[in-house]
Amino acid sequence: MAQSLAKEFTKGLWAEIPPFRLVLGLCPTLAVTKSVENGIGMGVATTFVLVFANLLVSLLRNVIPSKVRIACYVVIIATFVTIVELVMQAYTYELFLKLGIFIPLIVVNCIVLGRAEAFASKNGPVLSIADGLGIGIGFTLSLAALGAVREIIGAGTITIWGGTPVFEMVNIFPGYNPFAFMVEAPGAFIALGLMLAAMNLIGSK
């Protein structure tokens, strides 16, 4: 039990890390990773929804008739997304404004529905939580990494939760000019494509 629990948890961190290995959930990945901060915020919100949706789907897996299961999953997911929306509106209003419509759009994030359908509907609640947590943390790490690449190249600094930048490119390369292309739309596609290629290169050895 403990072994399979660890296996389900760790597979989300490398073997099936979204969005690189599982090419799902690209929209939030591309849209919100203008900075590390946004990436982490989005990742944490998605993780919350993933874990609780997985738990509830797994508990109800014998009750839900298979013909209407997708509709049921969608309602379960939408409920948790609404909770996240209200909580973020109350406590992290600035981040809520930055992420904008991508918070309600977690409902249609294929990762969440994909895990409910592919994993939670077939496994027990404890394993499902481990799966949701693993995939969620993997997703958060990917978003943070992509956000870091884009923010470092595009803005030349990394700023987390206001205040002074934690990292400045100018300290390493004097006279560094920010390459604003990376924080624009095309930069997102190209950065993700190159990171995917790098992961393929590492994985194939």
Binding site: F189, G193, L196, A197
Partner: peptide, 22 residues
């Protein structure tokens, strides 16, 4: 090139199209 195949080159191509749309 092998590491760039499939999704990776797809994303880079999409980036180029996005650049023209900009």
């Amino acid at each position: 090139p092998k590491p760039l195949q499939d999704t990776s080159i797809g994303l880079i191509t999409a980036g180029m199209i996005a650049l023209t749309f900009m």
